[in-house]
Each structure stands twice: as C-alpha cells, then as structure tokens.
Amino acid sequence: MTAGGECSLAAGAAAIRVSIEHTIPEAEIDGFHRLYETAFGPLRTRAIARQVLYRNEFQDEMTDPRVQKHVARTPGGTPVGLSTLTRHLETVPWISPDYFAARFPLHAARGAIFYAGFTLVDPTARQGTAFHAMITSIVRILAAERAVVGWDICSYNNSRFSFADALRAALDEQADADVAVEDAQTYYAARFTGDYVDKGG
C-alpha cells in the first residue's frame, strides 16, 4: 500500500480519514467489492450501458497503481468509502482519451486531464461525511494542478438520486470550477410486433 496524501474531516466526535492509495491490499479487495456490488449492482437492470465492472476488472483497478484510490476510513482504520481517480485515461475503457486531448490540448500537453471512475460509501457509515471527505481529497489535487476532470453519471442515478446536482454543489463549496455537460448518448429499442411486410413501391 502506498499513500500519496491524507486528509481528514470531523464528524462530531469521530473523524473520517482519507488516504490516497495506489494499490489496495489483497485482504481488503473482497470487502470493497461487496460495497461496490451493493452500490452499483442494481444498475445492471436499470441502465442500458454497462455500469458495473466485472469482478476481474474491479480487481485489476484495485491493483493498478495508475489509478488513485481515495479511501475513507474510520479512526480505527476500517474502510468505509472509495473513490477512484486517474490521469491515465487509457485505464478507463469506456471513454475516448483522444476526445479529451482534442478538447483540452493545453491540459493534455501537461498531463492535467483526469477521469473520476466511481465513488461508493458503506451504507452503514456516515455517508455524507465520507463522500465529502473523498471529494475534498480529489478536489485538492485537481485544483492544485488547474486540471480538467471528466466523469459520467447514468440517467437513472441522476433522476433517482440527483447525483449531478450533489456533485456540482460539493465542487462549488471547495473550488472555482466550470462544470459543463460534454456529451450525451441516447439508446433506442425497437419491439417488433408482426411479420415482415415488403412495403416497397
């Protein structure tokens, strides 16, 4: 485990500590994967685009040192939250690094384009506190580098949980950042209800 930084946020008498870890210890991966499944598993049937990493993909991300893991822990060291962030866009298979390089060439030239993968919090923890602490950890890095960061939220999470509004509010509290929708994709389905008919003239 390699820690690249640490911050803490008080929650009453307790505190949430966030460390930046490049490799999650093998003994903790199963626990994080259970939290991941709790948070993202329902999206298998609620979003057309695949939102859930396969188990081997999750394992690879947890052990890939190019992906920062911002881990929220209780004062006793128990992990209760996880956010991923990377400047190595090739580690995010569902985005196009070329898009970001063309859209933000000056940032690309100095390696200051990041992508935020996912954020999850143990439902038994102080969710708002852990979420805020992890966002604070990430924003400190991005603000220091005057970076560009991308992320995606499926329509289900936006409509059900207002994730985009919550994230924008968290960013507005901590830094000057211009947030804009970069792209959208609409999925269609056709349900055939009868036999083929040649309607040509």
Rank of each mutant, 00 (worst) to 15 (best):
T74Y: 04
S83L: 13
L89Y: 06
V179A: 07
R103G: 05
R160Y: 11
A170E: 12
G12H: 07
S96N: 10
L82F: 10
I113Q: 08
N56Q: 11
G117Y: 05
A143H: 13
I153F: 06
Y188Q: 06
G117W: 01
Y54L: 01
I113H: 07
A15P: 01
D183H: 10
P75L: 06
I20K: 06
Q127L: 03
P25C: 02
S159I: 09
F40H: 02
A180M: 12
A169N: 06
A15G: 02
T78A: 14
T74H: 07
V18H: 05
V67L: 12
V148E: 02
T186E: 08
L120Y: 11
I141Q: 10
A108R: 11
R73F: 03
F40L: 10
M1P: 12
E28C: 05
A3D: 11
A10G: 13
P97D: 07
E173P: 00
E173V: 11
T119S: 15
R160S: 14
S83H: 03
F131E: 08
A125C: 11
L82H: 15
I135A: 08
P123V: 09
T84H: 06
F131G: 05
P105N: 08
E90K: 13
Y156R: 02
R44D: 11
D122G: 13
R73Y: 02
A116C: 03
T84G: 06
A72D: 09
E90L: 14
R126K: 14
P65W: 10
M1D: 04
P75C: 04
N157F: 02
A108H: 15
M134H: 08
A175R: 15
F114A: 15
L53Y: 13
A170D: 10
A164D: 06
F118E: 05
D60G: 10
G200Y: 07
G111S: 08
G111C: 07
D64N: 15
H33R: 15
V92C: 07
E182T: 07
A180P: 00
M62S: 02
E57V: 00
T63R: 14
A169K: 12
S83Y: 03
N157D: 12
A102W: 04
D165L: 13
E57F: 00
K199W: 02
V197Q: 12
E21P: 03
E21F: 00
V148L: 09
P75R: 06
D64W: 05
T23V: 14
H22Y: 01
T86P: 03
Y36N: 01
S155D: 13
E90G: 15
I48P: 04
R126T: 14
I95Y: 05
F118M: 06
A3T: 11
Y115I: 03
Y99V: 07
H107T: 03
R140T: 12
A14D: 12
I16A: 08
L106C: 04
T84L: 08
A125G: 04
D183I: 00
A189W: 01
K69Y: 02
S159T: 15
A72V: 09
S19K: 14
G76W: 08
Q68T: 06
V149Y: 13
F40G: 06
P75Y: 04
E145W: 09
T63A: 13
T186M: 08
A112Q: 10
E28G: 00
L43A: 07
R146M: 02
P42W: 10
R168N: 06
G12P: 05
